[in-house]
Structure formats: structure tokens, C-alpha cells
């Protein structure tokens, strides 16, 4: 598996480009970190790759997953997972049902699906919390549940949007290790944007600077 960006650039509604075109290659199981000054459009950059670009922006360049061009596919057909600084568990579903929401429909049978979710909960140190209200979890538990939900959907690539910035300093190290271990063991290409240099160090992969264009 691999994620390739070919000369990706984004322009705003008035036609001005946000940053210089980006070309990069993310191999399976590796984390590439994108850094840049705030306001340069890091989140918009991830939106474009995941297929979530808001109306009004235009995109040029190509997003390739395992060599296949997915640039024109809608978000739900790309199989690109997304993690934010907030866990964004669905508030109306239990913790387990949040994970089940991510499980592909191809996995049949009530029992099999339940087992798959329970296994994932177990891996995340959340065993026995299937029926819990996500609002009652701690910050770290919520972040792990969100990662498991994303991984259960069997993404072909992972986008991390400042995933650790809202966690306590103590939890941050654990969560980085937990996330990057899963990226490695599942051999998913991952792209992370952050402004925390420690994130980049922990990720251990190449670092790409998103360069803003000099305003006239």
C-alpha cells in the first residue's frame, strides 16, 4: 500500500493558491509529517486528500492510492481514514456502536461483527466498554476509540490532523506510540499535519514543509 500526491495545489475562491504544489510519496507503514506556519492551509490540504474539500476551493494535481487515481472519488469511496484533534465519536451511539459504524459491511453475521468490535476494544484497552456513552470516557480513551473506529474501516491510507494537540502532555506520548505502532503493524501509509516538532520526531518519518506563497 502507498499514498502518492502528485503536484497537489489548492486555490481559494478568489483563485489564489494557498501553497506551493506538493508532491510526495508515503510508503506503507510509514508516517510522513507535514509542517507549516498556522494559516497556510494544513487542514485544507488534508481535506483535499480525503475528499472533504469545502465548496469554493479548487484542487489541481492527483491523489493516488496504490497507484490508483482517487482524486475525483467522493470521500466515502476513497477509503482514506481521518483523525482529528477531537475524537469526534458520534454522540448518539455507544462506544461499541461507534466502532461498529466503521466496520465494513462486507463482514457478515451479528456475532462476527460483535467479536470484531470487542477485539478492537480490547486492543485499545477499552474492554467491556461496548455499551458506554462516549461522553463518559476520558480524553485518552476517547482518542483510542476514535483510532480503532478508523482502523476497523480498513483504510488504505490514514490522515492525521494534529491528532495529539488536545491531549494532556502525559497522555500524548502514550497516544503517539499507540497510533504509530498501529500504523506500522497494519502497514498503512499515514500523513500527519502538525505544528508540534515532537510529533514529527516521534513519527520518525520524513518531514515536509508546506510553504506558503509570498503575498505580493
Amino acid at each position: 500500500m502507498s499514498l502518492d500526491l502528485d503536484a497537489i495545489s489548492i486555490c481559494a475562491a478568489d483563485g489564489t493558491a494557498l501553497f506551493q504544489p506538493v508532491t510526495l510519496h508515503v510508503p506503507a507503514g510509514k508516517v510522513v509529517t507535514v509542517m507549516g506556519p498556522s494559516g497556510v492551509g494544513k487542514s485544507t490540504f488534508l481535506d483535499a486528500i480525503g475528499g472533504h474539500l469545502k465548496p469554493g476551493f479548487c484542487l489541481s494535481g492527483k491523489v493516488l492510492l496504490n497507484g490508483r487515481d482517487v482524486t475525483t472519488l467522493p470521500a466515502e469511496a476513497r477509503r482514506i481514514g481521518l483523525m482529528f484533534q477531537d475524537a469526534l465519536l458520534f454522540p448518539h451511539l455507544s462506544v461499541g456502536d461507534n466502532l461498529a459504524f466503521g466496520l465494513p459491511p462486507g463482514l457478515r453475521g451479528r456475532l462476527q461483527r460483535r467479536t470484531a468490535v470487542e477485539t478492537a476494544l480490547d486492543q485499545a484497552g477499552l474492554a467491556g466498554l461496548y455499551d458506554r456513552d462516549p461522553a463518559t470516557l476520558s480524553g485518552g480513551q476517547r482518542a483510542r476509540a476514535a483510532l480503532m473506529r478508523t482502523l476497523l474501516a480498513e483504510p488504505a491510507a490514514l490522515l492525521l490532523d494534529e491528532p495529539f494537540s488536545k491531549l494532556d502532555a502525559g497522555l500524548r506520548g502514550d497516544m503517539r506510540r499507540f497510533t504509530f505502532d498501529h500504523v506500522k503493524s497494519r502497514a498503512v501509509p499515514a500523513l500527519m499535519v502538525t505544528h508540534d516538532p515532537d510529533d514529527a520526531t516521534a513519527a520518525g518519518g520524513p518531514i515536509v514543509a508546506l510553504a506558503g506563497l509570498v503575498q505580493p
Partner: peptide, 22 residues
């Protein structure tokens, strides 16, 4: 929160499922 809807899309949920299930 639009990110919640994006999270659902990233998990493979199409328009209909995002509307009815989320």
C-alpha cells in the same frame, strides 16, 4: 460539527447513511 460528518464519510458512509444514521 462538519468534521463529525467528514469522519463518517471517511469511514465509508455515503450521503444517505450520513443523513439517517448520524
Amino acid at each position: 460539527d462538519p468534521r463529525m460528518i467528514r469522519a463518517a464519510a471517511a469511514l465509508g458512509a455515503g450521503r444517505g447513511r450520513r443523513l439517517w444514521a448520524i
